[in-house]
Design a protein around this nucleic acid. Structure first.
Lengths: 171, 171
DNA sequence: GATGCTGTACCGTCCAGCCGGTACAGTAGT
DNA sequence: ACTACTGTACCGGCTGGACGGTACAGCATC
């Protein structure tokens, strides 16, 4: 069942920011997903496959997020920056987990993250004509992600920054 | 000798972005530093101590970088953003290595990175009166770091973004 | 000959992956 | 309808290898 698979991937995503890749052993992931280690290995034949599945789901989710941006009323800039600055969002948490995965030998998380960033970038470019400004928007969003990763968000100030950037994109 | 110590830390810094924390075994670090494992453990009694030493040196280097910013002719904003967007800088590489360390159980790299970001932030705030604009500058810099980590820098465009941001900080 | 440092051999632990097994559907032939 | 068989989902013990850390012997230089 795909349901168990998703539960396993959710468990991995929950574990990664807490204990890092080193602590995310197959047994730990299995326990968190309430599956035995054997059961986990039935769905994902190796740790590499597990990580690959996780990153694949992130890329799928990215497509959905980008769609949500495009569909947002005025334009996607604010939607984009809001997601970047909120840590209790499912997508943000998944993305941060992927960042933690960078450097693990089993999988090339950096490449996946790069693709995610690229997808966002082209989406921002769609609604911000000036390419330099579009890149600036994206960089601010990425900066928010980095700060979220190390727990350095400053909600009050960041809200004002977002407002300022949004204003810049309005002629 | 402090020279050997530094060589070991350099080896760790060189290894981390290449193979990640999992690949940075004591033996691998020792080999890269052209020291035996025993020699490494003479200087750093444990892996935790090795990581701690690495992060401590990063914090020291941060102080130096911030000083360089303060001393820069016009103001530090451009100096800051330039460093963030150049991957062959020693400090940048060390910083990126520390990012890869986030999530390892031996050491709290996130806290160190947070302190580094905070140091930069207060330095930027010194030369940019408007706090919102200062935070924006810092977020752009952090975004550049994140993009550097996954190899998504776009030098041509990023140069223009830096110029734009610098212009914004000039009244 | 003491001190600072190096190299090596070894131990204990931990973990990924394997494998033999269980349960429980279907499903088909009778 | 029951029996025999097959595939899917899952379990948990085992093992081989890797890695962190220890012990100890060697070797400069002072």
């Amino acid at each position: 069942m795909a349901e168990t698979r998703d539960r396993i991937l959710d468990a991995l995503g929950a574990l990664l920011p807490e204990v890092g890749p080193a602590g995310a052993t197959l047994e730990a992931v299995a326990a968190r997903a309430e599956v035995s280690k054997g059961g986990l290995l039935y769905h994902f034949g190796s740790k590499e496959a597990l990580y690959a599945g996780f990153l694949a789901r992130l890329e799928e989710a990215t497509a959905g997020e980008v769609e949500r941006m495009r569909a947002s009323a005025d334009h996607g800039v604010e939607t984009f920056l809001r997601v970047s600055s909120v840590t209790d969002d499912h997508f943000t948490r998944t993305f941060l987990s992927a960042l933690v995965l960078i450097g693990t030998p089993e999988v090339d998380a950096a490449a996946t993250v790069a693709r995610v960033l690229a997808a966002y970038r082209s989406a921002v470019e769609e609604c911000v004509p000036d390419p330099v400004l579009a890149r600036l928007v994206q960089l601010v969003g990425d900066g928010l992600y980095l700060n979220a990763m190390v727990g350095s968000l400053d909600p009050a100030e960041d809200d004002q920054v977002i407002a300022r950037v949004v204003a810049m994109t309005h002629p």
